[in-house]
């Protein structure tokens, strides 16, 4: 069966759900080979096997983390040349899209980003124009390189015993031109990752200030979800940019999206329009967010959210 390279998305070996989704999609079209770059493979091995990686290429060298993007480009380009895979799947994160971009030019291959589905024939689906269109596309030249969005598919296990191969990455000088001079890891919140959470509770300008986000966090915790924010809330310094949902923030596609004190500007909608169920709480009954909400409450979020948290906790017993 055709080999499909899957670039593993992980943090020090903690494999993101994202990767298990890509392995699931890759199995439709061929046999997935996981490509693991960085340290912590031992922690990742079990998950990769559980989700059907037939092979794992592991590249781990201390200097790889000094550079962004380029080590992964060099590695994937050499693996493409050697293994002639049927396709390469990478996560549709900002960084991996750039890896895919360089790889496409390097190997003369077509590239599709932000795929929300990949078929057995390697046809893809994407959302366009803030979710108002679905686009079917296919790579026609070279090795299809496809950047896949989180939550594209429900991950399915398919236990395997992968063959593990350590690979070296040769970094030519051209790959060392841009250097990481410092890296400050983000504080972990203990909540699920925003891009892959199945519930997201977001607050906007209507939250009113940084303290106002406490009740947004409480609702997220009661529902086991992640916290998001509109750009207005981020620009005001109330919540970190890493939590911004929208065109210039994260795109999320959870089972449940709760928008509190968010008007529903097109740039915000671009990041959450494909959520399964949308709930809006806004004191302005005319706010555009209600146009797309499955359930809306016209009211003050400072009353509705605390009462909702209490009600959920009461029902949970």
């Amino acid at each position: 069966m055709a080999e499909i390279l899957v670039l593993v998305d992980h943090l020090d070996g903690a494999v993101r759900k994202f990767t298990t989704e890509m392995l699931t999609l890759a199995r439709r079209a061929g046999e997935p080979s996981a490509v693991f770059v960085g340290s912590g493979y031992d922690a990742a091995a079990e998950t990769l096997a559980q989700f059907g990686a037939a092979k794992v290429y592991v590249a781990d060298a201390p200097d790889l983390s000094e550079y962004l993007v380029t080590p992964k480009v060099e590695l994937l380009a050499s693996l493409i040349a050697r293994t002639q895979p049927a396709a390469v799947l990478v996560p549709s994160t900002l960084e991996a899209k750039e890896i895919a971009a360089r790889l496409a030019i390097r190997t003369g291959s077509g590239l599709i980003t932000d795929a929300i589905d990949v078929s057995a024939e390697l046809g893809t689906q994407q959302s366009a124009f803030a979710g108002s269109y679905v686009v079917d596309a296919k790579v026609t030249t070279g090795t299809p390189i496809i950047a896949v969005k989180a939550n594209a598919v429900t991950p399915e296990t398919a236990p395997s015993t992968p063959a593990v191969e350590a690979v070296a990455v040769d970094l030519p000088d051209s790959a060392k031109q841009a250097r990481v001079v410092s890296r400050s890891p983000r504080k972990q919140t203990g909540r699920p990752d925003l891009s892959e959470a199945s519930v997201v509770v977001s607050g906007g300008r209507g939250v009113g200030g940084p303290e106002g986000f406490r009740v947004v966090e409480e609702l997220a915790d009661a529902l086991g979800g992640a916290v998001g924010a509109s750009r207005a809330a981020v620009d005001s310094g109330w919540y970190p940019h890493a939590s911004q949902v929208g065109q210039t923030g994260k795109t999320v596609s959870p089972q449940l999206y709760v928008a509190a004190g968010i008007s529903g500007a097109i740039q915000h909608r671009a990041g959450m329009q494909t959520s399964k169920t949308i709930i809006a709480i806004n004191k302005d009954g005319e706010a555009p967010i209600f146009e797309m909400a499955d359930f809306g409450v016209v009211g003050d979020l400072h009353q509705v959210l605390p009462a909702l948290v209490a009600e959920i906790n009461r029902r949970k017993g």
Binding site: V134, Q273, F290, V298
Partner: peptide, 15 residues
């Protein structure tokens, strides 16, 4: 390319 049907407006209640 296929235009997605607009999301149908759900229930909106006033608190």
């Amino acid at each position: 390319v296929t235009r997605r049907p607009p999301r149908s407006k759900g229930t909106v209640v006033t608190d």
